[in-house]
Design a protein around this nucleic acid. Sequence first.
DNA 1: ACCACTAACGTACAGCGTACGGTAGTGCGT
DNA 2: ACGCACTACCGTACGCTGTACGTTAGTGGT
Lengths: 242, 242
Amino acid sequence: MPSEQSTATAAPPRPVRRSRAPRGSLSSDLILDHALRLLDEKGLDAFSMRALAEDLGVGTMALYTYFRGKDELFRAARDRVLAAYTPPSAEGSWDQRLRAACIAVHELFTGRPAVLRLLAESTGNDDFIDTATAAMDRMLALLREGGLGREDAARAYGTLSRFTIGSALREVRVCARPEALEAFRARIAALPPERFPHLSDLAPELLLATENGGDQYEYGLDLILCGIRALAQQPASAATGS
Amino acid sequence: MPSEQSTATAAPPRPVRRSRAPRGSLSSDLILDHALRLLDEKGLDAFSMRALAEDLGVGTMALYTYFRGKDELFRAARDRVLAAYTPPSAEGSWDQRLRAACIAVHELFTGRPAVLRLLAESTGNDDFIDTATAAMDRMLALLREGGLGREDAARAYGTLSRFTIGSALREVRVCARPEALEAFRARIAALPPERFPHLSDLAPELLLATENGGDQYEYGLDLILCGIRALAQQPASAATGS
DNA sequence: ACCACTAACGTACAGCGTACGGTAGTGCGT
DNA sequence: ACGCACTACCGTACGCTGTACGTTAGTGGT
């Protein structure tokens, strides 16, 4: 101990001195709740361990009792979101059910913008939660039910997966942001029509398509499903016949 | 000057004292060259203004003479990559040319993994370079040439764009990483077949599809083009007829 | 009553982007 | 030839980040 503190020795920078939080005031679930709320409200960039701890009314290092670090916390948050996925009711033909399943995944993604970025940036080195694996298995089942061969089913799944995440990313980053929409509108209106004739000509349609991203996803999904149905009706690859 | 340095006063932490670089040793182009090299070699996470400056043999703050900050430097790097895009030769039918154009964009993206992440995370608030705008205009032209209506052309372009970036992201993050591939293989082999029967059954095909991502892109692209061709042959939306 | 255990915490360190001010080399007007 | 304005390069410093390490205080077991 350095020395006794005299009455008015100008406390260094006034760190506010929170009183120590009581023993049971933290848990993995509580931390994840606040983390997901913070991520949804302030975004991934504004998130920090310090901000999360302050939001919880707790010292920063208390978080490390429950998670090894930021990465593990993020993985847990991602899994929590994926676990909330509930497959749509199984009605209709195989392609109708496949369509519904894809849309459900897409809505799950776009509903949690910050977590979507975590998903997009994941290297795929770590396990997914059972819910996600089950969803994958179900989609493969539907593709097989539609009559696709083993290889076609695997590749068609890959196509749907790639399109879904790309689409969700796009919507989260631009379609859902009024500022980005306005910037897009201004940019497209300022283009010289003589140099970019088709862009200028289709400006209203492009703008409209950008404004409501969900419709755009379903539109593209139907294009892909059209190709998949063509596969289903023929033994060999029908899509490549250009 | 504070005071004369005595013989062995234990220089603080030894900052190496680089000698000042001569006057003409920097330029925007040179900085971008090194930045792109660093990004490609070490990845986006390992990149920092300090590391870039050291790579250039220059003080950190010298970079701020040419770029307002890290964001502006990244945008310039992105534009430099996009400017390198050369459209493929215009031969064949409209859909063959569209296919070739998409593949060229996809190869451009997967060739610069770090820059792709910059692209994926961009909010779309800022201008694109003329090269990119021209590529967009050309694709719209091809879609129109194929007979698509104004709205269908705009939406089909959106579909291709979403699939292309989602696909490139996937390939860069997992297909091109031996470690990620190995993790995927191990994960899929460890799944209980009774709970995920289709996943287990299609394991070899899924693995094969993951290994060569470029083929996967072309496969999905052909599925989408199949849907687009169906649109081209009918006035109303043909894809939604499920 | 005491102890072992551990949840919550404070401090510290290395690294980040960059605002601000300083310094030295250059080109121009005289 | 001289001086001066200009600016490319740079050092320092500030506030931020994630987290390693050691400390403290509350709790269940004996």
